[in-house]
Amino acid sequence: MEFFQMLVFPGLIFLSVYSFALEYFDRIVYARLQNRQGPPWYQPIADFFKLLGKEVIVPASVSKLWFKLLPVFAYAANLAAFLYIPLTSANSLYPFSGDLIVVLYLLTIPTLCFFLAGYISEGVYSGLGAVRALTQLFAYEVPLFMALLAPAILADSWSFAGISAYYSAHPIMMLVNIPAFIIAIIAAQGKLERTPFDAPEAETEIVAGAFTEYSGKLLALFRFTVDAELVVVASLLAAVFLPFYASNFIISFILYLLKTVFIVFILAVFKGLMARLRIEQIVAFCWKWLIGIGLLQIVLNVIIKGAF
């Protein structure tokens, strides 16, 4: 039964199907925002299978083992993080106290894999992309942690179950976390490397950043990882900032879909509104604004915690 759950729901197969669906949704919203028709619903799947059919070229001077393993690592880390996030009830598959922290750390692994993939590729574009990916990690990671930990401080629990329990008891407290939610959305945009924080893979500057030397199946797996990351991050934000569930499984599942679609909708609109920032502008913005507001939020939450 447990193996079935890991494989089907909420595991591998659900994550795969839903990441294609959310990529489609992301692309269609982005297209409609730009007054375009957008792709047909099967486009993400078609792209994936087309890439699977392409030749894999490994640069001659690169360690073949690592070059092939890194996409798998990145995807595996995403899947592992996904298994700890509660989707349809307050408890995930393996709940324990402190699972929020574990998920955050697991989510850092894909970015590190992107960095390593670019670094070992030995190309100039991939090298620059790798350095930028790592620089960006330092810019968004701190505000993202702060934004996600602020609700946890208020709930006095490092676990999803605890957060859910607290906010079910005091639903009005969810409103306190709105600034943190906005920071989390912006930082998530950086985490997912989307405009305006897509400097690590800015196509007009450094081709495809860290993935420049990747092709065929390996690139397909990386693209798949990026899609899966979108699902995982959306689920994570939903679990922390909108932690309410229904008792019925079906209703709860629909609620989960609505929550994640809502978050991806915000992310997609956000993507269409701005020009890409330079890497040093990203760092300056994240440390100047996001961290400042994040700190205020944490102080506010601590005060509220003490007052009530």
């Binding site: 925002l33 730009q34 007054n35 405009t195 897509d198 007009t204 269409g272 509104l273 020009a275 890409r276």
Partner: peptide
């Protein structure tokens, strides 16, 4: 497009 502002590009 060069500065990553594709919405302006499409409009």
């Amino acid at each position: 497009h060069e500065i990553g502002f594709d919405t302006l590009f499409m409009y």
